[in-house]
């Protein structure tokens, strides 16, 4: 099983059943699997904040939603997270690809890459940095945090992990 398959299976096992987001090359294998998965739904979104909104609607209806995005899209999503998820207590798993990690990337990713963890800390979202040997553990921990705090939790995915 590839790491992407292990990750998607892990998410489904934990009950996640509604996926939306905007692609990043780091997430392409995951999204490819989700799009062709007959048991679940992947909605291609036009913007990351819209994906956060759609996921919120799905959550209210009883689904367990996941939003996939590049860290650049985290910028677009901050107001949605702050003035929707955090105040209504709408948990959502947010898979964020971490472009610009350690300053090794194209120039457009460097500023966001440097501040991604700090941005999450500032807005008050717990996050987990994914490592290839602890995929199931990362998902477990994210679910536990979401259930305890009833807020979104981010899993940060660097290049080459999945």
């Amino acid at each position: 099983m590839s790491k992407a398959e292990e990750f998607v299976c892990g998410l489904k096992e934990k009950g996640f059943n509604f996926f939306t987001g905007v692609p990043c090359t780091i997430l392409k294998d995951i999204i490819l699997l989700l799009e062709s998965d007959p048991d679940t739904i992947y909605i291609p979104s036009v913007r990351e904040d819209a994906a956060v909104g759609i996921a919120a609607g799905a959550y209210l209806s009883g689904k367990s939603p996941v939003v996939l995005m590049q860290n650049s899209g985290l910028g677009y999503s901050l107001n949605a997270i702050a003035s929707l998820n955090l105040i209504y207590k709408i948990p959502t798993l947010i898979i964020v690809s971490w472009r610009g990690f350690e300053g090794k990337d194209a120039p457009e990713h460097l500023v966001m890459g440097k501040i991604t963890p700090r941005l999450l800390e500032t807005i008050g979202l717990p996050y987990i940095i994914l490592t290839p040997d602890k995929i199931a553990k990362a998902i477990d921990e994210a679910v536990r945090e979401m259930e305890n705090k009833m807020i979104p939790v981010a899993i940060l995915v660097r290049k080459g992990i999945i």
């Binding site: 509604f18 904040d49 909104g53 609607g57 949605a80």
Partner: peptide, 21 residues
């Protein structure tokens, strides 16, 4: 559902609900 923040997203929330229900 009174969406008091997240200006613009009422239609996204509505879409998420409509697909799921």
């Amino acid at each position: 559902f009174y969406m008091v923040g997240s200006m613009g997203l009422a239609s996204s929330i509505g879409l998420g609900l409509a697909i799921s229900l």
